[in-house]
Amino acid sequence: MQAQEIYEKLKAEFGDAIIEFNAEPFFDPFVRVTTDKLFDICLELRDTPEFDFDYLACLSGMDYKENLGVVYHLYSIKLKHSFVVKVTVSKENPVVPSVERIWRTADWHEREAYDMMGIQFEGHHNLIRILCPYDWEGFPLRKDYVQPDEYHGMKVPY
């Protein structure tokens, strides 16, 4: 199914929850949705037989300088089509509903996004750091991150 059709069906179902649809050249076609309807939209995308997005390929935390965001790359193994969903949240209150209950693979991806970007996933059963040590401070992949000088008595800069 083409991205345009998926967008139209989602728009008919969810209305204002779909903020924009982008199919410009050099972009994989994506929809931007509101955070409060994200879980329902994802569930719809997985469970409706004509969408059948049973495979969450990638979940990326993003830093857009003014605010943060999460990008979901979906793929359907049976129907062989793909789709992209995006959400944007403010830096002051970066809370996104967790999709871990829809795709179990999101468990580790969301922990990584939390570890690197500091995005809080509401409803995640175990949202702790995954790559950095548990007592690490700061979120390394944010654009304004500054390296610490010392960690446990070891010098960090070269």
């Binding site: 950095c132 991150y145 390296q147 610490p148 070891m154 010098k155 960090v156 800069p157 070269y158």
Partner: peptide
């Protein structure tokens, strides 16, 4: 030996095992 390719931006890499 010295952090290798991660010497500059590797915030989580020890720059040389001879530091410990």
């Amino acid at each position: 030996n010295s952090g290798g390719p991660y010497w500059e931006h590797g915030y989580h890499v020890l720059k040389g095992v001879d530091r410990i």
